[in-house]
Each structure stands twice: as structure tokens, then as C-alpha cells.
């Protein structure tokens, strides 16, 4: 495990690698998002029950999935940071938290805009919505904790511990649908064997999910690169990089 991680743990190597990934992932993510949303908005038949309002699904579901995916990746990074004491993993938490928070906010917001025409209310205190809101609070807590210390290294480590503790919340989010039987409709595509969604509607949704995932990766690369530079700014390789840039 450590052997596999080792090259990625070296900030300079990772910095160059991230730059290469970002150059591929960023355009790919935006392109896929454009394809998915245009397809989903214009070229799928309307839902027989919900009419055209269901098209919100193409941004709502991917954002909800990746809000949790971002938290899981943050927790994995926290685990790596705490167990193997790899600094880059700590910095990755700081790079992922704002992105995850925005994804969560998007999921909440689009959910509200979908709920208003469908359920007749912007907000219901239903389990899944509430858990998503808690997830947003967890993100905000991680961000606040990370920035609260005069010593940045302490903040990074504390945020790692909090991210790992908060990951206990993720299963609660996931299983809350089954625990509490409320207004929220069941998950749409968790059962891949027998999806309750028509294939012609499924493809743009899948593309959007992949797009937001790719975009998440690209944005993390972007932020992590800056974070690496900031933490390593007194190293010779950063000076060299700056001179090459100028």
C-alpha cells in the first residue's frame, strides 16, 4: 500500500501529475456536462407523471451523489493522512471541502426547486433532505475548523479527524430512506438490474453523473495544486516553477 502511495506523496511529483490530469479532466468534465444537460433538457421525452419538471433530476441527482462521493473521498484522504501521515492527503481535504459543500448546496437547492411544483412546498423535513442539510453543516464545520488555527498544520490535522468522524453520518444519510417512510420518492437508479427509469431517460442522467464526477476530480486537482504550492512555497522547486511560468 505504502509503496503504491509513495510517489503520489511527494508534493512535486503529485503537483506535475495533477497538472496533467487537470488539463484532461477539466475540458472533459465541462463537455460531458454540456452534453448531458442539453440531452436531458431537450431530447428526452417528458415524464408521464411529473411532466417537464423531472428534468431537474439531471443536475439534482448527480449533485446529491457527488456531495456524498466528495465526502467519502475526503474521509479516505483523512484516513490516509492520519494513518500514513501523508501531508498531501491533509491538503486534499482542504481542496475537497469547498467543492463538496457547493455540490451539497446545489443538491439542496435543486431539490427545493423540484419539490415546490411536485409536493407544493420548497422544503419538507424529510429524512433525506435533512441528512443532506446535515452534510452541508459537516462540510462547513470542516472548512471552519481548518481555518481556525494560527498554525495551518494543526488546522489541517484537526479537519482530518473531523472528516473521519463525520463519515459516520454518511451511512445514516444513505439508509435514512429505508428508516423513515416519508414523502421523498425512493432512489431512482440504485437497482441497476431493474431501473425504475426508462433507458432513454437514463443515458443523459448517467452522463451527467459521470460529468459531475469528472468535474469534481478536475476542480480538486486545481485547488490541490494551489494548496501544494502554498504549503511548499519556500522549496526550491516552487521557485523554479515560478521562474518557468514567468
Amino acid at each position: 500500500m505504502f509503496k503504491w502511495l509513495d510517489p503520489y506523496a511527494k508534493p512535486q511529483t503529485l503537483f506535475n501529475l495533477l497538472g496533467r490530469w487537470q488539463r484532461v479532466l477539466m475540458p472533459l468534465g465541462w463537455l460531458l456536462l454540456a452534453i448531458g444537460t442539453v440531452w436531458g433538457l431537450g431530447f428526452t421525452p417528458p415524464d408521464y407523471q411529473q411532466g417537464d419538471s423531472y428534468r431537474i433530476i439531471h443536475i439534482h441527482v448527480p449533485a446529491a451523489i457527488w456531495s456524498m462521493g466528495a465526502y467519502s473521498s475526503m474521509a479516505i484522504a483523512a484516513f490516509i493522512a492520519l494513518v500514513w501521515q501523508i501531508k498531501v492527503a491533509q491538503w486534499a481535504i482542504g481542496a475537497m471541502a469547498p467543492i463538496g459543500a457547493v455540490f451539497t448546496a446545489i443538491a439542496l437547492w435543486t431539490g427545493a426547486a423540484w419539490g415546490e411544483p411536485m409536493w407544493g412546498t420548497w422544503w419538507v423535513w424529510d429524512a433525506r433532505l435533512t441528512s443532506e442539510l446535515i452534510l452541508l453543516f459537516l462540510y462547513l464545520g470542516v472548512i471552519a475548523l481548518q481555518n481556525a488555527f494560527s498554525e495551518q498544520a494543526t488546522g489541517d490535522k484537526a479537519a482530518a479527524v473531523l472528516a473521519l468522524v463525520g463519515v459516520v453520518n454518511l451511512p445514516i444519510i444513505h439508509y435514512s430512506v429505508e428508516w423513515w417512510n416519508t414523502l421523498h420518492q425512493g432512489a431512482t437508479i440504485t437497482k441497476f438490474a431493474k431501473p425504475s427509469i426508462d433507458p432513454s431517460m437514463l443515458w443523459p442522467l448517467l452522463i451527467c453523473i459521470v460529468a459531475l464526477g469528472v468535474l469534481f476530480g478536475a476542480l480538486v486537482c486545481q485547488r490541490l495544486r494551489t494548496s501544494i504550492l502554498r504549503h511548499e512555497q519556500h522549496r526550491p522547486w516552487v521557485r523554479q516553477w515560478a521562474q518557468e511560468q514567468a
Partner: peptide, 19 residues
């Protein structure tokens, strides 16, 4: 959007702005 234009464009617009 079949009468749901406000909600659909609101959610897509704000999401795009946020991203």
C-alpha cells in the same frame, strides 16, 4: 418547460453559476 420553466431554469441556472 411545460409550465415548469421557472423551476427548471432556476435550478439549472444557479447550479451552473455555482459550478
Amino acid at each position: 418547460m411545460g409550465g415548469y420553466g421557472f423551476y427548471v431554469w432556476l435550478s439549472f441556472g444557479l447550479s451552473l453559476v455555482a459550478l
